[in-house]
Design a protein around this nucleic acid. Structure first.
Length: 447
RNA sequence: UCCACCGUAGCUCAAUUGGCAGAGCAACCGGCUGUUAACCGGUUGGUUCCUGGUUCGAGUCCAGGCGGUGGAGCCA
């Protein structure tokens, strides 16, 4: 019986007759010989169809194959430096071929395509090498995230997607009809995580979150995935140590397991090699000073090389500010102690400085922006109630959340890491819509 | 919500001052034993986003609309 193999394992079968099932990516021919670039999901290789070997009938069938035709190939594996593929350098001398389907003319060609066309054809675009590599990095990142948390006693407790009230009260939510009652798609699982830590100590949720913001930038999706760890008995300083260990593990694991994918994506991994603890930490105050100095010096910021705008203390950073700050360091940068006014209501104020809170954002290098937002949470019930009243949030909706602080309240902290932003950074892609199989962007719900 | 740009063959684009609707690729037919986006010869392929206007004549100019892309704000 001829063994069925996956193309990623091809090097283990040199000299053997094997079978491969897959799709034809590209066919080139030269008289009596045809080169079939075939992929099977695990990788791609070149199958060589030679007329004297196959006979006239089979060879005629090979010549009828169109791009994306599905087929079963039987042949002998051999090493050949000229053979392209993932991994390259191996090819099959085809001795038999069974056509499953001749594909209709395939819309995506090796030529360039515009982004509108590619997004309209996302269901087909996913088959391309580049999208394959990005998706492989994504699944590796997800696995690394779960491994690191699971191995350190974090319990995975998922939080509801259908929720009755705003998580943070600021950003726009998708409203749905919950049997006649208004409900919202979750923009965070954090508040529920805070309930869960009192039962389980260290938890995380990992799922899709939804933001109905009218954001049309390369850093925004309407639906994106976020992992949110939350830790009891944890203050800000300890949180930052957890974050830098966590992010470093994810980055180094991806570098190790996805070397071929990153090479295919032409990612310069030099900067990623640096991503090891400790990460630099600066306060919001220091960040504002750096920005003032940069504005004085006339600094411009990629990608458009526009002059950096000045900032007034108390304002949140714009994307160019984050890009500038992160560019001053060789690894991800913590910016801590943001003004209370530009952060969510539940963050613990800094003792003696109530105008700033015990928050920390992690800014990725190379302009990829904020990949983590985290903070120490307010642990005093009365202080929390006052914060909710001050922001004029509906008190009743937060009744249970406040109550958590009445039964054995402890200092606790947590953060949320945006999956697509992390994958974008690691793969070096310019727009995070390619970091998810079916992106939901403003004005695009299909396919 | 605001600002900018774009819409011509299946795809990527061109079309001079407003004057015959074009090319490359894809598809189809033929040729070639080492192709890497092969190459060579041939064939096919159009609601120029929509509606209205100006004009002898509109892909081109004007008005309105629709769709898309990029960015700002906000955020991960």
């Amino acid at each position: 019986m001829t063994p069925l193999i996956r193309i990623c394992d091809v090097k283990e079968y040199i000299g053997e007759t094997v079978q491969v099932r897959g799709w034809l990516q590209r066919r080139t021919g030269k008289g009596k010989i045809n080169f079939l670039r075939v992929r099977d999901g695990s990788g791609s290789f070149q199958a060589v169809a030679f007329r004297p070997t196959l006979g006239d009938d089979l060879f005629a069938q090979v010549k009828s194959l169109t791009t994306e035709s599905s087929l079963l190939l039987t042949g002998v594996i051999k090493a050949d430096e000229r053979a392209p593929g993932i991994p390259g350098g191996y090819e099959m001398d085809v001795c038999d071929i069974e056509i499953v389907q001749i594909a209709e003319p395939y819309p995506i060609t090796p030529k360039e395509h515009g982004i509108e066309f590619l997004l309209d054809n996302r269901h087909l675009w996913l088959r391309s090498n580049r999208q394959w590599a990005i998706a492989r990095v994504r699944t590796t990142v997800i696995r690394a995230i779960r491994d690191w948390l699971d191995d350190r006693g974090f319990m995975n407790v998922d939080t509801p997607i259908l929720t009755p009230a705003a998580g943070e009260g600021t950003t726009t939510l998708f409203e749905i009809d919950y049997h006649g009652v208004p409900a919202f798609l979750a923009q965070t699982g954090q508040l529920y995580n805070e309930a869960n830590i009192f039962a389980f100590g260290k938890v995380y949720c990992f799922g899709p979150t939804f933001r109905a913001e009218k954001s049309k930038t390369r850093r925004h999706l309407q639906e994106f995935w976020m992992v949110e760890p939350e830790i009891a008995f944890c203050k800000l300083e300890e949180l930052l140590q957890i974050e830098e260990q966590f992010v470093s593990y994810v980055v180094q694991t991806t570098l190790q397991k996805c070397a071929a994918e990153l090479q295919l994506l032409e990612r310069d991994t030099g900067l990623l090699q640096n991503v090891k603890p400790p990460f630099p930490r600066i306060s919001y105050d220091e960040a504002v000073e750096k920005i003032h100095a940069a504005v004085q010096a006339g600094v411009t910021v990629p990608p458009n090389d526009e002059a950096l705008a000045d900032i007034v203390w108390g304002e949140d950073f714009g994307a160019p500010h984050e890009t500038y700050l992160a560019s001053q360091f060789d690894r991800p940068l913590f910016v801590t102690h943001y003004p209370t006014v530009c952060k969510a209501f539940y963050m613990e104020p800094e003792p003696g400085r109530p105008e700033v809170c015990r928050s920390a954002d992690l800014l990725a290098p190379e302009g990829y922006g904020e990949i983590i937002g985290g903070s120490e949470r307010m642990s005093d019930p009365d202080m929390l109630l006052a914060a909710i009243e001050k922001q004029k949030l509906p008190q009743e909706a937060y009744h249970w959340y406040i109550e958590l602080r009445r039964y054995g309240s402890v200092p606790h902290s947590g953060f949320g890491l945006g999956l697509e932003r992390t994958v974008s950074w690691l793969t070096g892609i310019s727009h995070l819509r390619e970091a998810i199989a079916f992106p939901r962007t403003l004005g695009r719900l299909t396919p």
